[in-house]
Simulated assay, not measured.
Amino acid sequence: MQIGFDISALAEEKTGIGQYRWNLLRELRTQSSEFSILPYGFSFRGYNQLKRVAQDSCFRRNDKKGIEFKIFQIPRRPLIMSWIFCRQPSLDFFIKNADLFHVSDNVQPPTKNPTVSTIHDLSAVLFPQFHSSKNVFVDKWRFKQIAKYASQVICVSENSKNDFLNKYKLDSDRVHVVYNGVDHSKFFPIQDLFKIQQFKTKYQLFDPFILFLGTIEPRKNVLRLVKAYFELKNQQKIIYKLVICGKKGWGYEEIFKFIKEKKLEKDVIFLGYIDESEKNLLINVSDFVVYPSLYEGFGLPVVEALACGKAVITSNNSSLHEVGGEACLYVDAENANDISDKIFELIKNQNLRKDLEKKSIMESNKFSWEKCAKETFEVYKICQKQ
């Protein structure tokens, strides 16, 4: 069986969806001799990046024979619009020898073959105020077409599955929960003090700091986090810096405006997007991680921080309790006072922080990309039997 696997998300910097596609592809290639993976992608601006992905050594087997990639230098936006409104061109026009497709996370393209679609979250539909009008428009169409056309649907949490089934009418037997994973070879507690000191020197991170990881956009609740931090600084309760790591999404201007108004430029440090190879070091040198998102389908930054043995403050909403279990301290994400109170509690209560750190790695061990790939393969087999 030949499975077409969309990697278009890898044309850009790897955020949540990109991490999912990359890690799942890497694990799927080793899962079984019953099927082979045929990765394909569409991008004009990111064409060269997709070609680099295709040449990556992790997709080479021991005999140095690689997976066959099919990369098309085609602008995605017009293609997505054509798939949404015209239901053409068919994927079969581009990929001739696939038996089923694990299609894009952004659109449900037309094909005569069975399809598996992954839903990460329904935030654009449930909370349109957190998204650009373009994303809301595309996702509304996409979810309707997934409900209508997808052979099988993967949701990355029970919360996402419930949201999808509550919003759209389809047989629940078509919808499966397959949790995301974490790469424990990349995210782990670092004992090498020389590496840690090198990293601190490179980014000038010598003061103790609280870390936020994620795209800077309204849904991630960064503005409320900064306001909570400001209250603690204003009351002279903490000496910690706040480090924000992630690429700029949309609607971030108000955050920078607030920081400038409150003269927090020396206290709130923006690192931008850092390479995956350095993220483990960044988490390790932090004191703890705060992730007060307003809605998540899974919450990769939480499980990555837990895998590094860090205490995590996160929200008591959506899927985050599924990921954090008993290893996190939970807050009301819509209450800045609660966020500031929990930050102060974790700073002052060293026993609580140590207790959470002890639980963190055990909780993260529930998730792996190998397990994700095995369970995804089972969905493929269901799809094949249809």
Rank of each mutant, 00 (worst) to 15 (best):
V302S: 08
F187H: 03
D341S: 12
Y295K: 00
V290T: 10
F164E: 04
S340H: 06
V312Y: 03
D275L: 11
L24C: 10
F72T: 12
Y252I: 02
L320G: 06
F344V: 03
G272D: 02
L232R: 01
I7W: 03
T15Y: 07
I37E: 10
N62C: 06
F188R: 09
N106H: 07
C372E: 06
I210K: 01
T376N: 05
T15K: 10
E34D: 14
E68V: 11
N106V: 04
S315E: 00
F377G: 01
I190N: 08
S82K: 13
S33L: 11
Y240I: 00
E345G: 01
D332T: 00
R174K: 15
E27M: 07
Q386S: 12
I238R: 00
N162G: 07
I216V: 15
A311Q: 09
Y203H: 13
L271H: 08
K70R: 15
K385E: 15
T15G: 07
R142K: 15
L223I: 13
L24V: 11
G249N: 10
D341V: 03
G249Y: 06
N351F: 07
R45E: 13
D287R: 13
K220S: 07
K169A: 12
G214K: 05
L300Q: 02
S123D: 10
G16Q: 10
L294T: 01
L329F: 08
K186T: 02
N316M: 07
D207I: 00
D275H: 13
N280D: 09
Q145D: 14
E304P: 06
L271T: 06
S117C: 13
G66Q: 12
E34L: 14
I119F: 02
K65Q: 14
W369V: 03
E13I: 09
E158D: 08
N113V: 03
Q145C: 02
N284V: 01
C328G: 03
I259H: 06
Q55P: 01
K134S: 11
W83L: 09
K112R: 15
D105M: 04
D275T: 12
F206C: 04
R60V: 08
N48W: 11
F367L: 01
Q197E: 15
L225K: 11
D332Y: 01
L165G: 00
K371M: 04
E345Q: 14
K169I: 13
F93D: 14
L126S: 11
C86S: 11
V153R: 10
D121E: 08
F258K: 00
E276D: 15
M362G: 03
E345C: 07
I339N: 03
R60A: 10
I71L: 09
D287W: 05
K359I: 04
Q386A: 07
H321F: 00
T201E: 15
V379P: 10
E357Q: 15
E34G: 12
K96R: 15
C245S: 14
H120P: 05
Q88N: 13
A9G: 03
Q191M: 07
F137G: 04
I382Y: 07
F72P: 08
E254A: 10
F143D: 11
S160E: 05
F270N: 04
I67L: 15
E278K: 14
P109T: 04
C58D: 14
K262T: 06
R77T: 12
R52Y: 05
V178C: 06
F35A: 05
L122W: 05
L24K: 09
L329V: 01
R26A: 12
E34V: 02
T115G: 09
K257S: 13
K161H: 04
